[in-house]
Design a protein around this nucleic acid. Structure first.
Lengths: 202, 202
DNA sequence: GACTACATACCAACTGGTCGGTTTTTCTTT
DNA sequence: AAAGAAAAACCGACCAGTTGGTATGTAGTC
């Protein structure tokens, strides 16, 4: 028989609920009461697992968002030698996800949302979020280098510059889609990303 | 002798204070008490000039932010026939501004901040902000068309696609600078923007 | 018996917003 | 031009509801 109390599952449920609410709304705009209600637990449980609301936010970044970055970008690119095609494939995957589920369209990228909201207000948040961006950028940078070596990317492309530029472009695009909320706009933005990637082809 | 009461100036002071606080922090994270204190007025005055906090936010968008977009982008580009150079000049102007004043570096773009925070939560905000983005994009689109006609931009560039892509890229870059907060990162991002603009040269 | 994992009642501080009152400005009437 | 009425501009105490967080108690686990 399973034990009545499963602290690890409780903790994970709190984290996931928090991410969901931070994603749909904002960190500051989400109350701990909301998190507690939606997670079906109590305030005692939340403050037992996390020192405070900020610490909960840090854990969401360090654990959940890091996992998403690794899953969506680092792993798929880790063995890439044709990064321009592989990046486009990942982006097309997101587009298909968006076509099915309105949440990503309406709520944008949780990493970007948290960054834009919190980096000016809390340095602990900023540095943790920056770490994730560096991991994301380095995955692209490494793939671009491999692409150059394999002759699939123009030799004069600067992998450091373009990895950071591509991340900025992607976050910007997701943000614009969030404001526009139309399929048409998504297709236009997709064409723009493709144009930028194509400009790096040999 | 000047009259004791100057309702238009009071109203403008409220708007400017609100924008400053929304820019440094967030809309939801800024209380009307803060606005009232910093503006040196009272709650009565604020709620006399604006129906509520949301209406104040709408007015900030419709009046102040629209002015900034026109001043920084629409007017400088209105007569451009060499948009790639003129865009780079505007962006370099921002960079110089950033080197002097840390506020833009740390707080990002007020239009982007408000958009990312509020578009998922309030459709009135979203549509007003979207209007500003359309004005910004159309200014770039028109300049790109003029650039193609003048032979300063490659003929196969799609002005609609690239205007939206450039706006997304710029907002993404400002967002990344906000998270990084280093001069070094700013230079790298600047090089990336230049690369994208250069790829449109004939 | 000790410790972890919760539950619940509670708290001071703050939230956006209201309301009655006062002062200043403007409009109307003579 | 003077007087009076109406409206606009502003003040500040007050409100109900919510905020993040705590203190105390209790039940399950090792």
């Amino acid at each position: 028989m399973a034990p009545v109390r499963q602290p690890e599952e409780t903790r994970m449920k709190i984290l996931e609920t928090a991410l969901d609410l931070f994603h749909r709304g904002t960190f500051k705009g989400t109350s701990v009461n909301q998190i507690v209600d939606q997670a079906g637990i109590t305030k005692g449980a939340l403050f037992h697992h996390f020192k405070g609301k900020n610490e909960l936010g840090y854990a969401v970044v360090d654990e959940l968002l890091l996992g998403h970055v690794n899953e969506a970008w680092v792993e798929p690119l880790s063995t890439s030698v044709d990064p321009l095609s592989d990046l486009m494939a990942i982006i097309n995957g997101f587009r298909e996800e968006m076509e099915e589920c309105a949440e990503v369209v309406e709520c944008g990228c949780p990493l970007n949302n948290l960054s834009q909201e919190m980096s000016a207000l809390d340095d602990e948040f900023r540095l943790r979020l920056l770490k994730l961006y560096n991991i994301w950028e380095e995955a692209i940078e490494k793939a671009l280098r491999a692409g150059i070596d394999a002759g699939n990317v123009k030799a004069d492309v600067d992998p450091l510059v373009m990895s950071k530029t591509l991340v900025a472009l992607l976050e910007g695009c997701i943000g614009m889609i969030k404001v526009n909320r139309t399929m048409e706009h998504m297709m236009i933005i997709g064409a723009g990303i493709r144009t930028v990637l194509d400009s790096m082809k040999p």
